[in-house]
């Protein structure tokens, strides 16, 4: 039964792969610099790697937002988030945030079960949603200005710039996929942390794999499956959906997105900044959709290129709708599981 409950998390992972992971390689595929198949292999490999490495970090924050302690409750929350993403993705066809959907669904669980929502954690998560696109836009703008100033003086052959951009897109895209796995695995498997169906620990040769690592690995594989099966459409629309991007601008978008995801996911960076006495960014799951849209807008503003503001409005509306729809679906799913299937959705 617990395995059946986990299926909703895997479904959410699949939708994250189809949607959010498309953000990382979207501009690269849309500008025809990276083939879709290559993007799938690189993104799939690194997202699994990042997911397995994401045991510490952003997952804890979601756990503090809502300590879901019944498998049926976790099932309903993950299912609601996955359905919300898929519904909005189909409706507006542009990336919506899985992160926001899962937060909305957890708040829905808190509301249904009467558990308190920690306002401090919620504030930290929601403020990161504003910080993430702003940081990504600023970073992309700075990188773009630097590249625009430096490139003409570098005397590199047009074809070599092309080759280096491809290599850069794959390398930075791999880093982005790793950061996405590390940051967003919490969205997919965070709610199952307390109700994992895996054994406490298994030993494979010299390796000791914990229950959480197995859970995150399964989530990573689900994300990779989503990338392989459903991300093509989002990738293609993302590149040309907001504004026309050159391959070099696409590389900057991927770099800014990857860096922002990493900043919000890396405990190492957080620890390093604290030891220097600097303010560390909160380790919260942020949205790759927000990061990528922020980066594209950052470049567009510097370049003063025309932006399809209607499309931007649609995406921003999606960001507001995603948590709201997910919370609503979560309430409905929890009600059905508790009253129709008579399953406990929270520990007594």
């Amino acid at each position: 039964m617990t395995w059946l409950f986990l299926s909703s998390g895997l479904f959410l992972g699949w939708s994250l792969g189809a949607n959010d992971a498309a953000n990382v390689f979207g501009t690269a595929v849309a500008t025809k610099m990276v083939r879709f198949r290559t993007a799938v292999v690189v993104a799939g490999f690194f997202v699994v790697l990042g997911s397995a490495a994401g045991v510490s970090g952003a997952a804890g924050t979601l756990g503090r937002l809502g300590a879901i302690d019944a498998p049926a409750g976790a099932f309903a929350v993950a299912l609601a988030a996955g359905l919300a993403v898929l519904l909005l993705l189909k409706r507006i066809g542009l990336p919506v945030s899985t992160t926001q959907a899962i937060v909305g669904a957890i708040v829905g669980w808190n509301l249904y079960t009467g558990r308190p929502t920690d306002p401090d954690v919620l504030r930290r998560i929601v403020s990161s949603w504003l910080l993430c696109p702003a940081l990504s836009a600023s970073l992309a703008a700075v990188l773009f200005i630097a590249a625009r100033a430096a490139m003409p003086h570098m005397r590199i052959h047009l074809l070599e710039v092309d080759a280096w951009t491809r290599v850069g897109l794959l390398a930075v895209g791999g880093f982005g996929a790793y950061s996405l796995g590390q940051n967003n695995i919490a969205n997919v498997m965070g709610v199952f942390l307390r109700v994992s169906p895996f054994p406490e620990e298994i030993v494979v040769g010299p390796l000791r794999v914990s229950s959480v690592e197995m859970l995150f690995l399964a989530g990573g594989l689900a994300i990779a499956t989503g990338i392989a099966t459903y991300s093509h459409r989002v990738m293609k629309r993302l590149g040309g959906g907001l504004t026309a991007l050159s391959p070099l601008a696409a590389l900057i978008v991927v770099a800014a997105t990857a860096t922002v995801l990493w900043v919000f996911a890396s405990p190492t960076l957080s620890h390093f900044l604290r030891t220097l006495g600097l303010p560390a960014p909160p380790l919260v799951p942020v949205s790759s959709s927000q990061a990528v849209v922020g980066a594209i807008l950052g470049i567009s503003l510097v370049r003063r290129s025309p932006v399809k503001w209607r499309a931007v409005g649609g995406i921003v509306a999606g960001w507001i709708l995603a948590p709201a729809v997910a919370a609503l679906l979560s309430l409905v799913a929890l009600f059905v599981l508790a009253n129709v299937f008579l399953l406990p959705v929270a520990a007594p």
């Binding site: 074809l159 080759a163 290599v167």
Partner: peptide, 16 residues
Amino acid sequence: MTILFRRTRALEAQID
């Protein structure tokens, strides 16, 4: 990487 740039350089040479 070497193969990638070898092919690029060959094409550059053809353009030249």
